[in-house]
């Protein structure tokens, strides 16, 4: 059986700059991978390339998702095929309410897999349950997407969307940044509730703290656009203690 995600030798350019330089990474079903790395090393770029953001030019390599060529799909089809990107900086969209987006997103996914649109009542029950888990007040449903949300509320909202969509592969870009200690646990609980033998998670983070709660199978260091080191969860602890310099020297 093929891996959930197989990134081979991926190179990409943004704004005229080579940011990813031959990155390879394989995520198997059921695995949680963490990517750490210095600011500007290309972590968010990787997440955008996976999601298909315009302006990111692939200059080499390939990405296979469940055996198929991911990079040839438009963004929306990647999403419907089960890829979810939790943004480092979720955008505010005043005038589009949160619950509408949740429902439209869920229905887009269901439609793509030949299912009927979700029943209004069932949908509300589902969303309420997930909101409870994420400790988001129901008043947020009627608000504009991320509009006026605090930093932490935006991150929890990303996870709420993820829980409603139940993606096969979640790429979470610094979802833990800006969270208070309790919120971090809430987010971790959300991510853990999604862990299963069919799903994969790619956590981009700067802090080992999150990894205490969502224990990764692998930890990678991304530096200068490629994976410079891979280890188990103890690598995160070591990075926390020693910083990145020693990895960069070896790489």
């Amino acid at each position: 059986m093929s891996a959930l995600l197989e990134i081979s030798n991926l190179s990409a350019k943004v704004g005229g700059k080579n940011v990813l330089n031959g990155l390879s990474l394989t995520i198997g079903a059921g695995e949680v991978h963490a990517i750490m790395g210095p600011n500007g090393s290309g972590k968010s770029t990787l997440s955008y390339v996976l999601a298909g953001r315009p302006g990111y030019e692939i200059t080499g390599g390939s990405v296979r998702y469940r055996g198929a060529d991911l990079l040839s799909l438009p963004t929306e089809e990647r999403a419907r095929a089960g890829l979810f990107l939790g943004f480092q900086y979720p955008v505010e969209i005043p005038g589009v309410n949160n619950v509408y987006l949740l429902k439209a997103a869920l229905n887009a996914k269901r439609k793509a897999s030949g299912q009927q649109e979700v029943d209004a009542y069932e949908f509300l029950q589902l969303v309420r349950a997930k909101m409870k888990l994420m400790q988001i007040d129901e008043s947020f449903l009627k608000r504009g997407v991320n509009e006026g949300f605090s930093g932490g509320e935006k991150k929890r909202n990303e996870i709420l969307q993820m829980l409603v969509l139940e993606p096969a592969l979640a790429v979470l870009d610094e979802t833990d940044s800006g969270l208070d200690i309790d919120a971090l646990k809430v987010v971790a609980k959300g991510v853990n509730s999604l862990r299963s033998s069919e799903r994969g998670v790619l956590l981009i983070t700067h802090y080992q703290r999150l990894l205490d709660h969502v224990v990764p199978d692998f930890v990678h260091v991304l530096a200068r656009g490629r994976i410079a080191k891979t280890g188990g969860k103890e690598l995160a602890l070591e990075l926390e203690r020693r910083g990145y310099d020693w990895v960069l020297e070896v790489a």
């Binding site: 929306e76 979720p90 997103a105």
Partner: peptide, 10 residues
């Protein structure tokens, strides 16, 4: 891009 990344069509 945000909306597309949630699966909405263009």
């Amino acid at each position: 891009f945000y909306l597309l990344s949630r699966g909405l069509d263009r």
